[in-house]
Design a protein around this nucleic acid. Structure first.
Length: 404
DNA sequence: AAGTCATGTAAACCTTACCTGACTTA
């Protein structure tokens, strides 16, 4: 689950397990990885790590012998090296016995002990990457957790929910943090509205509706313009972009612990919106699922006309546009809502691409297709829960159960 | 067996592709 907090926890993990441990020899890369080889070899070196947003930097530091730099066989001194990692969707570090090779390991650092141990970069989906002699990516903004963030107006050229995944402005925010931040932001704004009406604001009860209850965002009246540009809103969002990931970090490693990947229960309990039954979801224009409660209001994304998943072997004429609607509602209503924007002007479509128009002509995105893919709610689920949500949660649960 | 989804992002698009694995559906 690599978002900012997980990257930071990974850097802490590496620094902790590698403290005082002497590594030796070349860095080993899997054959299948398309990332570059790490041209570093040294008889004795230390590994430390730091993080910034969604990047982790390993520093390989040759150990000096009696104050002298180590000489390599060619006579050239070993030089320190930084390697900057991005974790993609599934990257993490493991520290294991050298004889134990975690599946999907793509980069390994061996200790000079007997028996050997190894630090491994594991990445099932291989979307992660590393850069030898690399530095923090220049087009990424300051770390939302540990650096001051000053947003330019351009960050608000798009709906905030889309801007939040832009690492140029919010380095470290990913999809689950987006959901949790926007969810809490909505209540923060609700609180603000009530504070203005009531004299004893400190005695206000926590504004929190019952699970599954759909509440419109209270700031929808304040900002119905097409884009959120209200500067005074940004401090709220900025605060949450810092405090939410810090909460995950401060879970004591229970949110995401490379040593205990089987215990997600604390983290799952922390989630109030992401993949939570009763919450609704939409696709943003990048095909990412955005989770929210009730009417998405001014926080809504532009809705993708062409969801990310145009999978291989997809049958012609098969529709995928159901995912664009508000899940958990009858599909016709969702689509109508999306097309007409009756209740929600921000849930709007992109202008159709040529390909989309072509597909429509071919009948590949007919409304019939949408109807066929709609799923009824199941008994026992909170209102608005869809099959997709059930699947996802089951998947998370099953994974933790299985791993344990 | 086929389809769908997933905590990300580069490249060239305004989406698509890159990947694997778990799960559901037919």
């Amino acid at each position: 689950m690599p978002e900012g907090p997980e990257l930071h926890l990974a850097s802490r993990f590496v620094s902790r397990v590698c403290a005082g441990v002497v590594f030796s020899g070349p860095v080993e890369k899997s054959e299948v990885s398309k990332n570059s080889e790490v041209p570093f070899t040294c008889d004795a070196y230390y590994i430390t790590a730091t993080s910034r947003g969604k990047e982790v930097r390993l520093t390989l530091t040759p150990i000096e012998e009696e104050g002298e730099p180590q000489a390599r066989p060619a006579g050239k001194a070993c030089q320190p090296m930084d390697i900057v990692f991005r974790f993609g969707m599934s990257g993490f570090f493991r520290f294991t016995a050298g004889s134990e090779m975690p599946k999907h390991t793509h980069l390994r650092f061996y200790t000079n002990e007997t028996p050997q141990r190894a630090l491994s970069f594991v990445d099932v989906r291989r979307f992660g990457s590393w850069e030898p002699n690399g530095d923090w990516q220049t087009d990424r903004g300051p770390c939302v957790m540990f650096e001051a963030n000053v947003l330019s107006d351009r960050a608000f050229d798009k709906p905030i929910c889309e801007a939040m995944l832009n690492q140029k402005y919010f380095n470290g925010i990913g999809n689950y943090l987006r959901a949790e931040i926007l969810y809490r932001y909505a209540f923060m704004k609700a609180r603000t509205v009530l504070d203005g009406l009531l004299p004893k604001k400190r005695e206000l009860p926590e504004v929190k509706p019952e699970q599954g209850q759909c509440q419109p965002h209270q700031d929808s009246e304040m900002s119905l313009s097409k884009k959120i540009k209200v500067k005074m809103e940004s401090p709220d969002i900025l605060d949450l972009c810092h405090s939410m990931p810090m909460e995950v970090i401060n879970m004591g490693g229970k949110g995401y612990d490379p040593e205990k990947p089987d215990d997600y229960s604390t983290f799952q309990a922390w989630l109030q919106c992401y993949c939570v039954p009763g919450m609704k979801s939409l696709r943003d224009h990048n095909g990412r699922t955005i989770w929210f409660q009730g009417d998405p209001g001014p926080l809504a994304p532009k809705v993708s006309k062409s969801p990310k998943a145009k999978r291989k072997g997809k049958k012609k004429g098969e529709d995928q546009t159901d995912k664009q609607g508000v899940k958990g509602e009858p599909p016709a209503k969702g689509i109508k809502k999306e097309k007409e924007g009756a209740q929600n002007k921000r849930v709007k479509s992109h202008s159709e691409s040529k390909k989309t128009k072509e597909n429509k002509r071919k009948g590949s995105r007919s409304s019939e297709g949408r109807k066929k893919q709609s799923k009824p709610e199941r008994k026992g689920d909170a209102p608005g829960t869809t099959v997709v949500k059930r699947q996802r949660r089951r998947s998370m649960r099953t994974k933790s159960e299985k791993d344990s």
